[in-house]
């Protein structure tokens, strides 16, 4: 369901806040196109910290695994990343579709360790937005359509008080992969 309660600006602001709290960088340094690793100095544990803050803020579950991990699990090891840990043609095609907007450079043979550098502030923001978009029309607990928010971040049912149930980030990635595979048959 297209939700109108939480704006992209609000999500962007919260993402910035989470980054400031975790990485202790200046808010002014954070742009949508900032790579968390390359520009802001994040490491893998920092990602988890940032994700955790966003999860607590919005009542959601961010993806625990990077998209290519999902690809390898679904389509087999070696499909996106070869035995030398480098990106395959199919991996490139997929990343192009997923991150084309980010103006990132990916080429065949690119080392997989470089891939987390693709995660920008915009990617995180979009990740949260995608999860929020999975808001069901009606509350699965009481059947009413009465979503509301008190703090502009967490959604609850105005009828029975239950927190809004969103799809989790990993499931959304799997769904996206399934639909892309159906359409483009990359793998």
């Amino acid at each position: 369901m297209r939700q109108n309660f939480i704006t992209e600006q609000k999500v962007f602001d919260e993402v910035k806040k989470a980054i400031v709290e975790t990485l202790r960088v200046d808010e002014n340094e954070i742009k949508p196109e900032s790579s968390l690793i390359k520009d802001l100095g994040a490491e893998s544990l920092d990602f988890l910290d940032i994700n955790y803050r966003l999860e607590q803020k919005f009542g959601i579950k961010m993806a625990r695994h990077f998209i290519l991990e999902h690809v390898e699990e679904i389509f087999g090891e070696g499909s996106a990343i070869d035995e030398n840990g480098q990106l395959t043609d199919k991996g490139v095609a997929l990343l192009q579709m997923r991150f084309g907007d980010e103006h990132a450079e990916f080429t065949r043979g690119m080392d997989m360790d470089m891939l987390p550098t693709l995660i920008t502030v915009h990617v995180l923001t979009k990740g949260v937005m995608d999860i929020l978009e999975s808001l069901p029309d009606t509350c699965p607990n009481c059947g009413n359509t009465a979503w509301k928010t008190e703090d502009g971040a967490k959604l609850t049912c105005g009828s029975c008080g239950e927190p809004a149930p969103f799809a989790n980030g990993d499931d959304l990635i799997k769904q996206w992969l399934a639909s892309v595979q159906e359409e483009k048959k990359i793998f």
């Binding site: 544990l45 988890l48 955790y52 999860e55």
Partner: peptide, 10 residues
Amino acid sequence: TDSFKVLRQY
């Protein structure tokens, strides 16, 4: 410690 941040999510 920092690793706890991982545990609490899993």
